[in-house]
Design a protein around this nucleic acid. Sequence first.
DNA 1: AATATATATATGTCAAATACATATATCATA
DNA 2: TATGATATATGTATTTGACATATATATATT
Lengths: 135, 135
Amino acid sequence: MTKDDVAGGDRNHHSPADDVETYMREGPGKRFIEPRILFLLSRGPAHGYELLGRMDEVPMPGPVPDTGAVYRRLREMEKGGLLISAWDERDSGPRRRVYSITAQGGRRLAAWVEAMRRRMQTLQSFLDLYEEKRS
Amino acid sequence: MTKDDVAGGDRNHHSPADDVETYMREGPGKRFIEPRILFLLSRGPAHGYELLGRMDEVPMPGPVPDTGAVYRRLREMEKGGLLISAWDERDSGPRRRVYSITAQGGRRLAAWVEAMRRRMQTLQSFLDLYEEKRS
DNA sequence: AATATATATATGTCAAATACATATATCATA
DNA sequence: TATGATATATGTATTTGACATATATATATT
């Protein structure tokens, strides 16, 4: 059930499903949560809620990820050795789990960056091929 | 269960999960099957098996999609009005369902192309931001 | 003649990622 | 006292596609 299978008519003109935004997104599937988190934490430790509010600082395809997905991913990344966390000591306010990136997390970020470079090249090749055809 | 949670040790040196290939892929999730099919069919009608063999002609992130995924996607795309198919008439060989792209499919391809352009720009912004930090 | 391989299309099943909804608790302000 | 911001977390449903398997035709090899 996609948003454009309202069926009937509508077969001749521009349909809502042709909207570019629909194809900018990956989902469901990768929303690039991991590289977003790694990038933000490479600039210094932060807790989940802060990261959540700063997700839009990282230029990545697709909308910013969901709250639950981010917290869950943070735990998984810690389990995988990419991050470490500690409860902060504050005498007031709800407790926060502060995350830091590990050396392994740094290498993972480097891998993501290289992947993004290659991805750009791939997309450029696709666009070249597409233009070539119609020039 | 990812291929790098073999656990124990291995925390200090380059782990197999840092391999760039792992992050070039989208999966599970979009394998860009739709734009691949649309692009190939924009050059002329073809049947599923042929498209399958020519998937690698389209530069797209990630590995070429699975057989079953392609056939299933072809049917869905036809149902959505992006393609039309007809059984070819051959006196020999297994029967083939030959697909052609529709006008709507052409518009969808255009949307994908524009999405790819924007995606490239987004990735460039990410890389710029990353370099900026470390220069 | 029997077997294997290429061509060709299709379905069954499972796991991964994550959106959406909800639950919990602290603290400040109206 | 109620509302909203801060802060973390879990329950559940959906989507996508890999992997495996099933079916059939035709050709090449033994």
